[in-house]
Amino acid sequence: MTVFQQLGRGVGLCLWAVIAQAAHASEPILLTVSVDGEDTGFTRSALEALGTAEIETTTIWTDGVQHFSGVPLRALAEMFDVGDSGFRAYAINDYVIDIPLEDARDGGALLALDRDGEPMSLRDMGPIWLIYPYDSDRDFQTEVIYARSVWQLIRLEVMD
């Protein structure tokens, strides 16, 4: 990235953070995205503002077809101009796993916020469960993908 681009990004983010904070000062931050030591907090509204998508699938941890809606990982990847190294995901119980950039594509990982129309509480694997459309492709039915299906996601770190 050029200096100008970096500068631009930084300004944009600051602005956005201010606005977001101003708009949603009372909402809790669900997800923190960290880039080169800089953290950006996202509330639910902030995340939803990035655009939502839905996935209908069964999972190995649940019974029956689940209806998830949330923010595609791709939106975050684009926003933060994430490189091939992807993210490092942290769960609330100190579970850490790397998510490569290729998972952040159309038809790929989703930061699920709602399950069956209801927001997921911590007890329900929420507030953010990084899920994949398992039923759509056998390639999503591997242990590696299951290991990346982080629930109780709290933080994404952009890797370089």
């Binding site: 190995i60 941890w61 019974d63 609330i92 119980n93 911590l122 007890r123 329900d124 694997m125 629930w151």
Partner: peptide, 19 residues
């Protein structure tokens, strides 16, 4: 509370997952 929820969800998994 957080740790309780985390534990709760884990047990839910044990309870619910077909595996």
């Amino acid at each position: 509370r957080v740790r309780f929820d985390v534990f709760y969800s884990r047990v839910a998994t044990l309870q619910g997952a077909p595996a």
